[in-house]
Design a binder for these strands. Structure first.
Length: 587
RNA sequence: GCCGGUGUAGCUCAGGGGUAGAGCAACUGAUUCGUAAUCAGUAGGCCCGGGGUUCAAUUCCCCGCACCGGCUCCA
């Protein structure tokens, strides 16, 4: 069997050959394999590759593949290499840069096309499996934005046609789940030219957002955190003191009034710190757990904006905790529990934890770093929760834990974090009075369960593909009168549901039930109540679930208690007992 | 920010040097219907913005802006 990595690597060479046939002057940089195929960074001296070229490249590649041309390896000296690739500027740069210590080099040749490469490769081009040229994008020489920009041609490559097809189906699935599309379809939010990168929450989207907000609030509250709210615009001097100005002024928004300069907050911690400093704290006050649903603004480069995933203003569930060093461990322990159980509520069961340790440039003594890093590890060890170490990837001001989840199409997302911070207490000269009567410096912990609520909602929308569970659904119940004769009764019913705290709407459109069902399905309402003569007479309900299943002859009180129960328990299920199979389902 | 692409009705998209079309949605009328689209009609457009070429630009060229795919970045 041919190894997939080798196959992909070889496919990159074949693609380069095909590109060279189309553009003889093409300059090639690097062409490695990726998680789903391969790419090659190229420069076309007079012009650029176009979308239309991809089909041509693919056809050429298929021709080369069919011809089963052998890959031939050769060892050459530096001098030979410099001569051989003299027309390839990036190969020359590589030879004089990354490869400057190699006395001999390896080349691979297939079908008259030679590339500098360590290998290994498949025996012949017939062995490269199923591929397709996927897309074209920008990149930089050596990945540095200061360098010349190149074009990156991506290809997918798998051992078999079926695997390639399956992977493409998965990509298509991801595309269909795109939260930006769902946001439009379900009337949740919008973006506008007038405020690029800023979310406009519509009534339905804000409903979901606020439910989420309440949920997170109650979690923090259970942990003994007190919610505060600090200003969005604060004097620029504060940001000098915190160090944010120095490091992040390029991504901050500024404004000047009455000759004094202010910045829109990019973080919430200085606000929490000023709050801490309003009193002389005692060791009895610690740990002092503050938290803020802080709305922060960060100027992001136009090219990186991406719906809710990357916006220029967002809401952080930002906890700030002030404690003595020996209290860190207990706090971490509490927090880890909260995070793990929170993610499970949302159906994120695959959680990976990283501990990021001391980087080269950092502040604080070796002992305090060790104490803090151990304080992060010990609770995880005690709970038997596995974690990985990211060596030297902590912040300069302290180590941190990062929580990652995998969504239902296997994409990885970093959500929560808890960071130990020695820097801020120092910069702001925070103190508390210890039992010894002396003043001590507290340690600060920054923590977030979801990070950005906006981003989390984007991830979650894609995770459930817009099918919110009962507790989060902006409209929980849609009442569908079969004819106009039931309109009045539906109005009364929806009032009963509203009084019970259930979010219900009536579809009064002069349409057939089929159409009303379709419309409700399209916006993914969990419950549809079909109200005809029968139901109006018997005062019972015919319930159609979003999943296509039905439960009939349900007394109103029974329905109300089921929905309320499922919402209160934040269940993913739509009914509280076994169901008859669906009559019909459609994606 | 950089590279490439896109920008036409509320939405999804077609079209193309002689100022525009479809489906859905909206509105009106008819239909009163039982678990994913009833029928007919009406209305709807500074063809992203600004320059240029041309007798004539929504179409071609240049410059912006926004969005999409990446790269870089993400305290």
């Amino acid at each position: 069997m041919t190894d997939l990595h080798t196959m992909r690597h070889s496919a990159a060479h074949v693609m380069a050959q095909a590109i060279k046939e189309l553009y003889p002057n093409a300059q090639f940089a690097f062409g490695p394999e990726t998680e789903d195929g391969f790419y090659y960074d190229v420069k076309i001296p007079d012009g650029a590759l176009k979308q239309e070229d991809l089909g041509k490249i693919e056809k050429l590649m298929q021709r080369i593949q069919k011809a089963k041309k052998p890959f031939e390896q050769a060892e050459i000296s530096r001098e030979q290499a410099l001569e051989l690739f003299k027309a390839q500027e990036f190969k020359i740069k590589a030879l004089n840069g990354l490869l400057k210590d190699s006395a001999t080099l390896t080349t691979y040749t297939q079908d008259g096309f030679t590339d500098l490469c360590r290998g290994p490769h498949v025996e012949n081009t017939g062995q490269i499996g199923a591929f397709s040229i996927d897309r074209i994008a920008g990149s930089y020489w050596l990945g540095d934005s200061k360098n010349e920009s190149l074009q990156r041609v991506y290809g997918l490559c798998f051992a078999t046609r079926d695997e390639l097809k399956e992977y493409k189906t998965m990509l298509e699935e991801a595309r269909k789940r795109d939260h930006r599309e769902t946001g439009k379809k379900l009337d949740l939010f919008s973006f506008h030219d007038e405020g690029p990168g800023f979310v406009f929450w519509h009534a339905k989207g804000l409903k979901v957002f606020n439910m989420l907000l309440d949920h997170i609030r109650s979690l923090y509250s259970k942990q003994g955190a007190q919610e505060i709210k600090t200003p969005e615009v604060l004097s620029v001097e504060l940001w000098h003191q915190s160090g944010h100005y120095e490091n992040y002024r390029d991504s901050m928004y500024f404004t000047t009034v009455e000759d004094r300069e202010y910045a829109v907050k990019p973080m919430n911690c200085p606000g929490a710190i000023l709050t801490y400093k309003t009193a002389l704290r005692s060791f009895r006050d610690l740990p002092l757990r503050l938290m803020e649903m802080g709305h922060v603004h960060r100027f992001e480069l136009s090219g990186v904006l991406h719906g809710l995933f990357r916006a220029r203003a967002f809401t952080q569930d930002d906890g700030h905790l002030f404690c003595a060093p020996e209290q860190i461990e207990e706090e971490i322990s509490l927090f880890v529990d909260a995070v793990m159980s929170t993610y499970k509520v949302f159906g994120f069961d695959d959680i990976t934890i990283y501990i990021a340790t001391r980087p080269e440039h950092s502040m604080g003594t070796e002992e305090i770093w060790e104490t803090a890093t151990n304080a992060l590890k010990v609770p995880l060890d005690k709970k038997g929760i596995p974690y990985k170490i990211k060596e030297g990837e902590g912040a300069f001001y302290g180590p941190k834990i990062e929580f990652n989840v995998k969504d239902c199409i296997k994409r990885n997302w970093q959500l929560g974090t808890i960071q130990v911070d020695f820097a801020m207490p120092e910069r702001f000269e925070l103190e508390y009075v210890g039992s010894d009567g002396n003043r001590h410096r507290p340690v600060m912990l920054h923590r977030a369960i979801l990070g950005s609520l906006e981003r989390f909602l984007g991830i979650y929308i894609e995770h459930v593909s817009g099918n919110f569970p009962v507790w989060l659904a902006p409209v929980q119940v849609m009442l569908l009168p079969v004819t106009d004769n039931q309109n009045g009764y539906c109005g009364e019913l929806s009032q009963i549901l509203a009084d019970a705290g259930i979010r219900a709407e009536v579809d009064f459109a002069g349409e057939r039930v089929n159409k009303k069902i379709r419309n409700a399905q399209m916006v993914k309402v969990p419950y549809m109540l079909i109200i005809g003569e029968k139901e109006a007479g018997a005062k019972n309900l015919s319930v159609r679930l979003r999943t296509g299943e039905t439960v009939n002859e349900i007394p109103v009180e029974r329905f109300v208690s089921a929905v309320k129960g499922l919402a209160a328990s934040r269940a993913a299920a739509l009914w509280d007992e076994p169901l008859a199979p669906p009559q019909r389902t459609e994606a």
